[in-house]
Design a protein around this nucleic acid. Structure first.
Lengths: 347, 347
DNA sequence: CCCTTAATTGTTAGCGCTAACAACATTGCT
DNA sequence: AGCAATGTTGTTAGCGCTAACAATTAAGGG
């Protein structure tokens, strides 16, 4: 009765023989297809002998379960959507890697949607894309302060883990403690005897940018130092360069805590051109510890974040939500400072 | 007769109301479910009036097609798997972005599998993962010479586009013309009057590493210059630094073409420490033009590759394979040189 | 040795969609 | 008007899988 026609007109790559189905395995093992289903789903009530025969049949036929069919009936795709911006940056890219690793280890597929510019619309687009795909959950890798709100408005009915969020809202979060990182940087400078410590911040509508600035401020206030030397950059080396040119003539600070390594690179370049020596005249601390930071001129003292670990934690959190239905929460990864040649006591 | 139970025990996020199906839309529009299917698939033979009513019903109910059900019957998942290594690097990350953009624009989903170390096994693992998912095609973003062979052995029955391959084998390819890029770099140095031009290459078992070295060699031979000054690095800034320390004492070349920007950064650092001035004593050219290259000390002359365009071309090629069943082939993106302060005529 | 309970296996229905075909309505032509 | 050709809509079956339930077998207790 079975009518096995090749419906698709695409023939170049679809071999004539169809892939084996549960039914084929069942026939070979001399059991019903349901028993095979039980074996591949690890149901307890299958006798050892039967399980063995079925597993043998599966191996012989090279059977692989059809994901679409399973998804249709279980309403689970075993796919996680990663909604990301800035994927070409070191941090987000590595976080994605962490998510991917943890996901694949747990038997999940990872789908991505990159957004070019952060806006409620672009986020909604990407989320819709994921809903069309039927993802089981979404990891939002969009470290922007508007992300939470934008996602909240969508009323998604899948769990969402937001990277960089501390999990106050409806969504779970996973983050590196940015404030702590900033404090580590500033305290390192204070220990070396600096009194005038400036900050080149990231954009303040980016979560990390705001948090690092806040950590810088807290550390200064706690030490009784002025927190008035702050300029906002845009994360790029170019903005660090531009700001560095201004700072080089201003002579306001003996140390600068820069919001990320790339802006620090631009700053170092501007200082170099202007004859401001680092660290003799001004000490510089970055943030991220991207692999190149140790080869800047001079090698950069910076704050290391373990992005892959962050990604893995995200996925762990997602799995908890998915499998135990656990409530919202947050997991925090601790950064640490890496001291190199760009910092020294003031002259 | 329909028994609409919620089978899954996971309730936290699965709202009570089920998503609307074709049937629901059909009922609302007063047509059969098949007519609705025709509308969403843009079949020609639907009257304007009917189409209008159906579209209204779709909008009112917020209907979205169930991907799993469609995949089950069409045997197409509309998903492309991107098999990638080195995703944390600027180039591959941006290529991925290009693929993602082109894919989403074409209504495809993008799934990723990252491999930590390149080996036949890890590639096979990732490919199996994709086959389990039922991807329609695979984009291999693993710029290693062994990739083609490893993929070939798997006898995949989906189209494969290999990034960096010129499409000689069974698979289609998309590449930036690495040899041309290298020639542009070397010819720039020759034009400035350099006679002794060394090369710090990437690993020779990486496609790009080998191609760039070959381009360097060709340009030198064509100009009648010696091609004996070559050292192999591992792409990292650290390896560039180590090699730079040796070159600084050797004084063998007046110009160095470095396989990528990161190694160039390390080289610049080593030269800076050793008192070798760039470009006065030695000119340096990099490869990639990552965004930071213009802020190195000194700003780096380098070869720009348009990675996003490369990614888009990959996806275009994939779509051609998928929809027209076109044969294998290759598309080539041209690099161009960006001249900055790290190169000058020899003293 | 029969009856209850538990363990194991089989049978049936249906997830939501598209392909194939059947049925019906419309148009144009002789 | 009558008939073919075309355009439009409906009906049916089945993609490969899992859930629910039915059926069978094995084990234990009086």
């Amino acid at each position: 009765m079975r009518c096995r026609l090749a419906h698709n007109s695409f023939m170049a790559y679809s071999s004539e023989r169809r892939l084996p189905r549960l039914e084929d395995v069942a026939e070979r093992a001399g059991v019903s297809h349901q028993t095979v289903s039980r074996v591949i789903n690890n149901h307890p009530n299958v006798s050892k002998a039967t399980r063995g025969r079925v597993e043998a049949a599966i191996a012989e036929l090279g059977y692989r379960r059809n994901t679409a069919a399973r998804s249709l009936v279980t309403r689970r795709s075993h796919t996680i959507g990663v909604l990301a911006s800035e994927l070409s940056q070191y941090g987000p890219a590595n976080t994605l890697l962490g998510v991917e690793q943890a996901a694949r280890d747990a038997g999940y597929f990872v789908s991505i949607a990159a957004i070019r510019e952060v806006s409620a619309e672009s986020i909604a687009d990407a989320a819709r894309h994921f809903m069309d795909q039927g993802v089981d959950g979404i990891v939002a890798l969009v470290p922007h302060t508007g992300t939470l709100q934008a996602l909240d408005n969508l009323n998604l009915d899948v769990p969402v883990v937001v990277v960089g969020s501390s999990g106050e809202g409806r969504f779970s979060g996973a983050m590196v403690d940015q404030k702590l990182g900033a404090r580590l940087a500033v305290e390192h400078l204070i220990e070396q005897g600096h009194k005038r410590i400036g900050h080149i911040s990231g954009p303040q509508d980016w979560i990390d940018g705001a948090e690092r600035a806040e950590g810088w401020r807290e550390a200064l206030v706690q030490a009784g130092l002025a927190d008035d030397l702050i300029v906002e950059g845009d994360w790029s080396a170019g903005s660090g360069y531009g700001i560095g040119q201004q700072l080089a003539v201003a002579h306001a600070a003996t140390a600068v805590f820069v919001g990320n390594d790339q802006m620090a690179l631009g700053l170092l370049r501007a200082f170099g051109e202007a004859g401001v020596r680092v660290p003799q005249d001004v000490s510089v601390v970055g943030f991220d510890d991207q692999p190149e930071a140790g080869y800047f001129t001079p090698p950069l003292t910076t704050v290391r974040q373990d992005f892959e670990e962050l990604g893995r934690r995200c996925m762990d959190m997602m799995l908890a939500l998915l499998e135990d239905g656990a409530g919202a929460g947050a997991t925090v990864v601790e950064p640490r400072i890496v001291v190199r040649a760009s910092t020294a006591p003031p002259a």
